[in-house]
Design a protein around this nucleic acid. Structure first.
Lengths: 147, 147
DNA sequence: TAAAAGACTACTAATTCTATATACTTTGTA
DNA sequence: TACAAAGTATATAGAATTAGTAGTCTTTTA
């Protein structure tokens, strides 16, 4: 399961993606629109800014905005920045690798082998899907509802 | 990430799968072979037994064994029995569904849409892979090492 | 210079996970 | 028949993680 932090981060980026090219958007606006606790969101946006995904502007009229086009921000990046490993086992994680302490031989572990496949499938989707894609898909979902 | 409970459960089933058709195997043997805390494993095997995956025999010469052929036990079942949801978001989980409490419209949520794809890809692999497959893959991995 | 807005640090509460402890029941065999 | 082997069951403790809150500081603009 994704942590709430990761979930909130993705949702915030989607909102900021829709706002891309316009004036920066305040934390409190994002928080109230997306029903995210404001103080918690502050921390998350700060992380995303420190990672270079967002710019911020202090003072009156300040707020946050995307540094890059939403089409160039991929979901997998957000997971990694917010500490959500893609893999279901630590021993198949690229960025959060850890040896399973009970494991005897990693190289010949059949369980690992299966979850390697799972990771690869997940990674493919998440590294091909951008914030812009999510916004586009929302549009499609809304269209389909109206029909 | 899978919980240790889920991991231990899969590993125990693999060991029992290799032992299928023979005399029941003791918890302590499985625990020491797989480096799993014995008391913890006890609870896990009990759950799997109550779910109908294992039979048990008390007393001297007792132990646990698979009820079904390892080719008929799929990894996805083990995840579900041990409480490990397949989905990365509660709102796309089939067996552990929960509404995201911050979500405004589930039907038009682009984030949900993406993680629905991820869940489907994961589910496909995990529901096609059996304990027997894992054992077979271990064999292949060992062969490749020896070459 | 006051208000708006983000930056940063620390802390707390809640939950979940992992593991252990203890007492009990069943079964085989000397 | 008594004892040892082995599973059953429940309770609980400890650790780690997550989620969220609080408070203070800094920057910017009107």
């Amino acid at each position: 399961m994704l942590s709430k932090k990761t979930r909130y981060a993705i949702k915030a980026l989607v909102v900021l993606g829709k706002n891309f090219g316009e004036a920066p958007m305040q934390i409190s606006k994002i928080a109230s629109e997306e029903h995210i606790p404001k103080k918690f969101l502050e921390q998350i946006l700060l992380d995303l800014r420190n990672a270079g995904l967002l710019y911020s502007k202090k003072g009156a009229g300040g707020g946050y905005g995307l540094v890059k086009d939403p089409a160039e921000i991929f979901v997998v990046q957000v997971l990694r920045l917010t500490g959500g490993p893609v893999a279901l086992l630590p021993c198949v994680s690229l960025n959060f690798y850890q040896k399973c302490d009970e494991c005897i031989s990693e190289a010949t572990c059949g369980v690992r082998d299966v979850f390697l496949d799972v990771r690869n499938a997940t990674l493919k989707i998440l590294s091909e899907t951008s914030i812009a894609d999510i916004i586009r898909r929302e549009g499609l979902l809304i269209e389909n509802m109206e029909v």
